[in-house]
Amino acid sequence: MMEILETLGIGLIDALLWVLMLGVGLLPDALAEPFSYSFMQRALLTAILVGAICGLLSCFVVLKRWSLLGDAISHAVLPGVAIAYLLGWPFFIGAFIAGALTSVGIGALERHTRLKADAAMGLMFTAAFALGVVIIGKIATNTHLMHILFGNVLGVQYPALLLTLFAGLLALLAVWAFYRPLLLYTFDPMQAQALGFNTGLIHYGLILLLTLTIVASLETVGIILVVAMLITPGATAHLLTERLTTMMMLSVAVGVTASVVGLYLSFRLDVASGGAIVLVAAALFLITLLLAPRHGLLARWWRARRLRAPSPAAG
């Protein structure tokens, strides 16, 4: 059964790679050249998938003010991954349990002590992260740890690519099927409660999706930088539109662009792929911050200038 699924998955990935290469074939040779290597083709597909999932989820992270929580969960995933590795479980299971435990722990600390949310999060995730570093130091080499922390998209193999594809499809389906509860919970949790939605379920469902996204991005940008991909695309899109669906599409576009351009630059300049991808995303944000039509700095400066200037009628 598992073998059939695996064969199916590999077939699907090969098909996607083939379609992708058709697209790359249209590019000028200088741009297309790196993608003649099969490891670069796999890296490209992974980068596109990760950029898209992170872009989609980052809308919720930004609007729900969960940036710090995203950071906390991504760090807390480390011991989960390590313990899952020890027990021979799939990474994802361990990661999700660790992510969920951390978010429950943060909530409990917040409710039952004088600590505020930021201290509770900082405390929980650094402790979990330290546990992860210690366990991984015992069971694996330093290069392995570095790959989990900072990603190594150029070395992506089929199993990891399959996991990313699966996580991406699941996230997309979940956001599609539960769009209205997610929208309502993000916008106004009290209203969601008044309408009889199970806000606890939505809350942990969203955390599950976040964990899924983080695990899927492990190989590309790594644990430390994934939070950048969970904030920057959404933040960029938030400056550009007043509609959630448009924001999601823009955010996915920013995530995919950053991933693809970052991957290309990392190959050309021989720099770390995770760092390159995040820097491209940050550059896209910076450009948007300057030039966005309504919320951009230039537009605001222009409006303020026009307000200050005496109107000609008033003389």
């Binding site: 309502l184 539109t241 509609r243």
Partner: peptide, 13 residues
Amino acid sequence: PISVQDTVLTGRF
């Protein structure tokens, strides 16, 4: 990022 009518529509969810 939501319009006035979409906000009111959430009352129908």
